[in-house]
Amino acid sequence: MKKEDSDKFEIDDLLKQTLKDDLPPELENSMKKQLILFRKKMEQPELQRREEANRALRRLFHGGGLKWMQWMLKKQVLAPASIIMVVLGAVLQITNPSSVLAESISLLKTSIIVSDRVSHAESMECSIEMPAENEQYYEYFIQWLSPSLTRVQVKKPNQDIIKTMWISDDKITIADHATNTLRKVEKVNQIDAPEFHHALRLLSPLDLVEQMEGKWRLKQYKQHGDSERGTFTVAIPEENTILELTVDLCTFLPTSLKKFLADSNEESDEGKILMNVNFKWNKSIAPQLMLPKITKGSSCA
């Protein structure tokens, strides 16, 4: 055997023997649990996103993050840092009396809790009102019980319900109350009735969460004095609109949502409200409402 080959085998053996395959059984079990959790997260992508955010936070306070904190607590670092912070504090006091940092942390914290509570809601009812400026505007009443049980009613302002849609196990049934007919479609994107289009964004709590996390740009969060309500102001740049999402701070669930044009404001320009949504959460919904049938003339709750 050549000298190089023998060296090669020896280094290979050294590595194999030293870095041997002796995974402790308790660690193996623990890793298997991680895998089970990973599989669950694959089925629920929002869980994985939340886990990543949690891991990022944990890292700040463990391992490398902890070392940085230890380093930062050294006197040589602490003294100049405290001077800089005092100066910055003074500057902030002079220029802006409100605490920008506290505001942004509060905004972030509340939005994360709201997103979490909405995604874990057991039922959702929401009524959507559109100002009746022309024939295209409708009022909606959405009742969501589970991903496979949703009912949407649509009516024109000051008229009876004109259509009802039931979504169950991806089978969609649409009742036209004017003609007393039922029609079935396979997917939501096959719904050609324009009456339902505005409601498609809020068919479930997860739709709301997806919009909160994906398309909405949080601008501001304001708590209403001593009351138990807070309001997020959100921009949707691609639509040039502003949303105001009011949240009940006891349950951290949204109570209302108002949509404006970006260049208007609520007080001075009431006429430019594009959409007004009122939510009710975790209320019991009669299961029979979720069964497709034609009911004529019932009022929109």
Partner: peptide
């Protein structure tokens, strides 16, 4: 207002016009 939901659950077209898989297919 255009439909621009990025929900895979209900098979709604996203902003690029793709029809996304229904949840069942996605999970499978």
């Amino acid at each position: 207002m255009d439909i621009a939901i990025t929900s895979r659950k209900h098979g709604v077209p996203d902003t690029q016009g793709w029809t996304v898989c229904p949840e069942e297919i996605f999970l499978k």
